[in-house]
Design a protein around this nucleic acid. Structure first.
Length: 166
DNA sequence: GCCAACGTTGGC
DNA sequence: GCCAACGTTGGC
C-alpha cells in the first residue's frame, strides 16, 4: 500500500527528515489515522510527505515506513503537547510508526494536485478531508511520481570522446 | 444511542 | 483571521 502523511513544516519538514534520516511519527491523535498506522502499515511501504498548514501546502517528498506501530511515547508525557491523561503504559491509546527519508523533490503544490483529473478521487483532495494519514492508490502514486515530481536531470556521463578534448 | 455544543483542521 | 467540515464530548 501507499500512503500520504501530513506534517506542518514548522513542526517537522521533509528537510528535518532528510537531516535526521529517520524519525518517529508521533503526535497523531485521530483514531482513523492511528488505525491506519497500527493495522495497515507495513515496513517498507512508501508514503508521500505532505506539508500542510503553511504558505505552500503540497507534496514535498517521499518517506518509507521503517517500523511497525508502537506506543506513542508522547501520550505519557504530562508536560508535552500530546499528553493523554486517559492513556497508561498498560493500555496505550496512541501508536506511531517510524519513517525514514527516501527522497525530496521540488514541492508539488496542492493546486497542481487539484489540477490533475487523474487525481480527482485522491482522498486528500476530497472536500472536508482532514485526515493526516490517508492511503494512496497505486495509480495515484504512479501519476504523482512519474508526472508531477520533477527531479534533477541525471548527471551527463562523459563519453569516451570527452577526455580527448585538449 | 442521540445529538447539540464545542474543538480542531487546514486552505484561503 | 475566517470559516467549512468533520471529530469528540458529555448530558440525557
Amino acid at each position: 500500500m501507499y500512503w500520504l502523511m501530513k506534517s506542518e513544516p514548522d513542526e517537522y519538514s521533509i528537510d528535518d527528515l532528510a537531516r535526521d534520516g529517520r524519525s518517529s511519527w508521533f503526535g497523531v491523535r485521530n483514531y482513523q489515522a492511528r488505525n491506519f498506522m497500527r493495522d495497515q502499515m507495513r515496513v517498507g511501504e512508501l508514503a508521500f510527505f505532505y506539508h500542510s498548514s503553511c504558505p505552500e501546502p503540497g507534496i514535498a517528498g517521499i518517506c518509507r515506513i521503517a517500523s511497525v506501530a508502537k506506543p506513542d511515547e508522547s501520550q505519557f508525557d504530562p508536560k508535552g503537547d500530546y499528553f493523554d491523561p486517559k492513556a497508561t503504559r498498560e493500555r496505550p491509546i496512541w501508536f506511531c510508526v517510524d519513517v525514514e527519508f527516501v527522497e525530496r523533490f521540488p514541492l508539488i503544490p496542492l493546486a497542481a494536485l487539484r489540477a490533475a483529473p487523474e487525481l480527482a478521487e485522491m482522498t486528500i483532495l476530497k472536500r472536508g478531508n482532514r485526515l493526516s494519514i490517508t492511503p494512496v492508490t497505486e495509480a495515484e502514486w504512479r501519476f504523482v511520481t512519474s508526472r508531477l515530481a520533477t527531479r534533477p536531470a541525471p548527471q551527463p556521463t562523459p563519453g569516451p570522446q570527452a577526455k580527448a578534448q585538449g
